[in-house]
Design a protein around this nucleic acid. Structure first.
Length: 264
DNA sequence: ATGACATGGATCCCATGA
């Protein structure tokens, strides 16, 4: 089972790239972030036409997440929204149980963690609180011992080697010690960073800013992650970054990241 | 010298992002 996470930065702008990617890579599950549209504006017919079931949690203009599941696999037990704050109106979390004939089930979440900048604003405590809510929810899900993959745009640079120029990020919400500590605390629940487990090399990035020639100069950061529970990590076969999509016309500033799990 | 931002909403600039 191949599971991909991709922040598309507007699904309406990126539907062509998405359909081409589905056709070329044939991932079994795709976790999308930053749809930037409401549910009724999602290009459902096109994606279903490519062979995928579609579950969305949209929002006007900002945020928005989705799960795509390729037949013959099916998705059930869909949960919209991260537990722990009934006041939270932002569309940043969707989860479902993916299963099929001859495949051990995997619970998959598509997560769009808050950016958290500016650090002096309420956005930063919201980010830290969201990470803590995610930790608590992950702990609860892991108690069932079903394979679990928490995939998405975490907006956290875990280590200095995950940025081409770490010094440029020292006071940014993506790389502040508190942000990195909260991410490590989440990992300490027993989660494995799927990409890092497969590829220890520095210089592995998933995001390049549109500005200042970051892409041609390869000034990237690694902020899109797939975190695997022990049952999922036991099935980890490979992980990769689909970097070429950043070089297309009108790209997202993020590229897809994919893990492959064995069937059982 | 390099290379110089994108998206959506309601404008004719702003909020947001990372």
């Amino acid at each position: 089972m191949r599971i991909t996470t991709w922040n598309v930065n507007s699904i309406k702008q990126r539907v062509g790239h998405l359909l081409a990617f589905l056709d070329e890579a044939k991932p079994d599950v795709v976790c999308l972030q930053e749809l930037k549209c409401q549910d009724d504006a999602f290009p459902r017919a096109e994606v279903e036409g490519a062979g995928y079931a579609v579950e969305t949690l949209g929002q006007k203009a900002y945020n928005g997440v989705a799960l795509l599941v390729r037949a013959p696999l099916a998705v059930s037990e869909v949960r919209r929204g991260l537990p722990g704050d009934p006041e939270d109106e932002q569309a940043r979390y969707i989860e479902g149980l993916v299963a099929g004939e001859g495949v051990a089930p995997v619970r998959v979440a598509s997560i769009y963690l808050p950016n958290g900048n500016p650090v002096a604003s309420a956005k930063y405590p919201y980010k830290l609180a969201f990470l803590e809510r995610l930790r608590r929810h992950a702990r609860r899900l892991m108690e069932a011992e079903t394979a679990l993959v928490l995939a998405g745009d975490y907006n956290v640079i875990p280590e200095p080697e995950d940025a081409a120029d770490p010094a440029a990020w020292t006071s940014d919400a993506l790389f502040l010690p508190q942000s990195r500590a909260a991410f490590r605390t989440l990992l300490a629940e027993g989660l494995t960073d799927g990409l890092r487990a497969c590829d220890p090399r520095p210089g592995l990035y998933t995001f390049w800013d549109y500005q200042a020639g970051c892409w041609p100069r390869n000034l990237g950061i690694r902020i899109d992650h797939l975190l695997l529970s022990p049952q999922a990590a036991d099935r980890l076969v490979s992980a990769s970054v689909q970097k070429h999509l950043r070089g297309l016309d009108k790209p997202s500033d993020h590229v897809p990241v994919t893990v492959e799990l064995s069937d059982g």
